[in-house]
């Protein structure tokens, strides 16, 4: 069975080590802006949220790609990109519901999580095990959804105070 990344928001301390190791592994530099995972922080509310490609199936980015540069890799259960075909129209960046596809301005190419070909660096370095690499079973997918729901509920309290 392919595996998937699962994020446990309660465990994330916002240390951003995942961003660093991701950029080191893929680009050879320590540069969070070139990472394929990003921690979104709302410091005052204590919310730390790792945002990373969800490896959707069917995926909006694959659907929208006008050159078939993005496709589904059955073996690892991930979206892959063929740079020979990519025309950098960035439609995938615009349609990703998770904001998980980005354009690397240094290398001049589209990047998104490739699961490090089956050995994700972010998982290996996450000290609190906030990111885990587990079987892509339906039950794990459901857990992931429920965790996101819970997070949203806690976030509401801070962000959606009555108007006035």
């Amino acid at each position: 069975m392919p595996k998937m990344l699962v994020v446990n928001y309660d465990k994330c301390t916002g240390c951003r080590l995942c961003e660093l190791v991701c950029s080191v592994k893929h680009e050879g530099v320590s540069n969070p802006s070139r990472a394929r995972i990003h921690i979104t922080k709302w410091e005052m509310e204590g919310i730390m949220m790792p945002m990373v490609c969800n490896q959707c199936e069917p995926a909006p980015c694959i659907d929208a790609c006008p050159t078939n540069a993005r496709s589904w890799d059955e073996h690892l259960g991930r979206v892959v990109i063929d740079y020979d075909r990519c025309i950098e129209c960035k439609t995938c960046v615009a349609v990703c519901p998770f904001g998980a596809v980005s354009f690397d301005h240094v290398a001049g190419r589209i990047i998104s999580c490739d699961l490090c070909d089956g050995d994700p660096a972010c998982v290996n370095f996450c000290e609190t095990e906030a990111i885990q690499y587990v079987d892509a079973s339906e039950i794990n997918k459901r857990r992931q959804r429920e965790a996101a729901e819970k997070l949203y509920e806690s976030m509401r309290k801070f962000t959606m105070a009555p108007a006035g």
């Binding site: 519901p97 998770f98 949203y152």
Partner: peptide, 14 residues
């Protein structure tokens, strides 16, 4: 707005 919209996206998924 990502943290906020994350929920919209997350619930719907693809």
């Amino acid at each position: 707005l990502n943290p906020l919209y994350y929920r919209i996206a997350r619930c719907l998924g693809p």
